[in-house]
Computed example of a mutant assay.
Amino acid sequence: MTIKKSFKGLFVGLITLDLIYLAESPPQNNQKLVADDYTVASGGPVTNAAVSFSHLGNNAKILGVVGCHPMTQLIKSDLANYKIEIVDLNYTTENPPPVSSIIVSKTGKRAVISINAVKTQANIQAISSDILQDIDIVLIDGHQMEVGCAIAQLAQAKNIPVVIDGGSWKPGFDKLLPFVNYAICSANFYPPNCQTSAEVFAYLNQIGIPHIAITHGENPIQYLSQNEIKLLNVPKIQAADTLGAGDIFHGAFCNHVLQETFTTALEQSAKVAALSCQFFGTRRWMEEVKS
């Protein structure tokens, strides 16, 4: 019997508190709705990715801003359930954490209103000198851009692979990308002067990123292999909730790419993300299906 190796990942970026409601549809103006179900969890791209990475049998560490506001106890207790370490870049701040309010409709689509990390940017002086000790892989979502750039440079110097979650283009990505090994982007990721997927691939390839993929939800993943854009089909499912699927994909990718080829890692990650979409919220897929 082969025993899976446990890896250690560092996840750099946004940490939020997510209030997630299941309802027939989002409310209209002046309309009040009673939700059919709800759940509360920590959220943010790298946070959900870290939970996914941990669930697959690894050790995850999140680098971001949480602070000491009473609401942060909900974030800390949730992540403690998954044995995830938080490295707080501003643990003394009493400001409330970013909160996302999310309505998931019966069709599986979601409506989100949130505050991102714009008001909780950390300084690179807050990074400890041993932050990358024993780390096997780094995932950066761009929400803590200055910190992310610094970590990516340190990781490259130590030959630690760097993955970006390219959900959307953010100022500063141009400084981060030269230190990236794997660019896993959404269909909404458009660098300056790029309007098509082909232009995005060309932009990232010119920078020298060796592995690039663009996800398209339930449609095939595009990825660059040997200077050719190829397609990878994803599982066909009846989605109950697509919230966090991309984040979960990234966490699974960080697990699989350390063990398998780039293409296989994309394929296996798509299976994990598809599984997560069959359950309400960002956690219940793990409760129903143990690692």
Rank of each mutant, 00 (worst) to 15 (best):
R284I: 03
T107F: 15
M286G: 05
K83P: 12
N48M: 08
T2R: 15
S101T: 15
G172P: 00
I135A: 05
F279R: 02
P210C: 09
F253M: 05
V163H: 10
N90Q: 11
K109S: 14
N205I: 11
A122I: 04
I221V: 10
A122G: 00
G251H: 10
S186V: 06
D165R: 08
Y203I: 05
I84Y: 12
K83E: 15
A270N: 03
S186R: 05
E267T: 15
L266C: 04
I15W: 01
S291T: 13
L139K: 14
K236G: 02
I75M: 05
T264W: 01
S197W: 11
L275K: 13
Y91G: 11
P191K: 12
A239W: 04
I15Y: 02
N58Q: 13
Y203R: 07
I20K: 01
N159T: 14
L22D: 03
N95E: 15
I102S: 00
A117W: 03
F279Y: 14
P178S: 02
F7M: 11
C277T: 10
F189K: 08
E199A: 05
L243E: 00
L17C: 02
N233Q: 12
S129H: 11
V40E: 02
S269P: 10
L177W: 01
I20V: 07
T2S: 14
Q73Y: 12
A150G: 04
A49W: 09
A240K: 15
K158R: 12
Y203W: 06
Q31C: 11
S25H: 14
S101H: 14
L154T: 11
Q278M: 07
R283L: 02
S42A: 15
G166P: 01
I62V: 12
I3E: 08
P178V: 03
C68L: 03
